[in-house]
């Protein structure tokens, strides 16, 4: 009996996690060129959104001092000085949010100079949220079930 309920619980949880994956409809891959302006201590735009499979080229322009741009997860980087732009290209195969960080010490707030690359659809985020909701539902069911016993 206990095992049956456990299996049912696991199935419900798996469905909850899988739901967003089933619903997600990724768009056709495209070529995208994005210009990012870097100045102490932020990027403009601070968030870049692309779709999975897109071939992305980032052109980095510095408007004050020497800056860099490193993308977590993709492990690609470039740097730029005023009047000397940087560039990098990659195919956005991994989905989710990835941090873009300055890779050249540019002042006191350098470690906090951050932007985001968001590659949609974000399965990881949807899955995590549904997992949290699943934990909530399971906990309520669990304490209610013990009450009946």
């Amino acid at each position: 009996m206990k095992i049956d309920k456990l299996i049912i619980g696991i199935i419900i949880l798996a469905l909850l996690v899988g739901l967003p994956l089933i619903l997600a409809q990724p768009e056709e891959p495209k070529e995208k060129t994005i210009i990012i302006n870097a100045k102490q201590f932020s990027y403009t735009p601070d968030t870049v959104e692309v779709n999975r499979g897109d071939r992305v080229t980032i052109r980095l322009i510095s408007t004050d001092v020497h800056h860099g741009l490193y993308i977590d997860g993709y492990e690609v980087s470039t740097d730029a000085r005023p009047g000397q732009d940087g560039s990098l290209t990659f195919v956005a195969n991994n989905t989710g949010k990835f941090v873009m960080r300055c890779s050249v010490t540019c002042g006191p707030f350098h470690p906090y100079m951050i932007g985001y690359l968001k590659v949609k659809p974000d399965y990881r985020l949807f899955g995590s949220i549904w997992l949290a909701v699943g934990i909530f539902i399971c906990s309520i069911l669990l304490v209610s079930r013990r009450q009946k016993q």
């Binding site: 932020s42 601070d46 707030f109 470690p111 906090y112 932007g115």
Partner: peptide, 15 residues
Amino acid sequence: LIMQGNMGFLKDWAN
């Protein structure tokens, strides 16, 4: 938000 966020204005405020 200050250390790992993307909002430059907030970093300027904290700085």
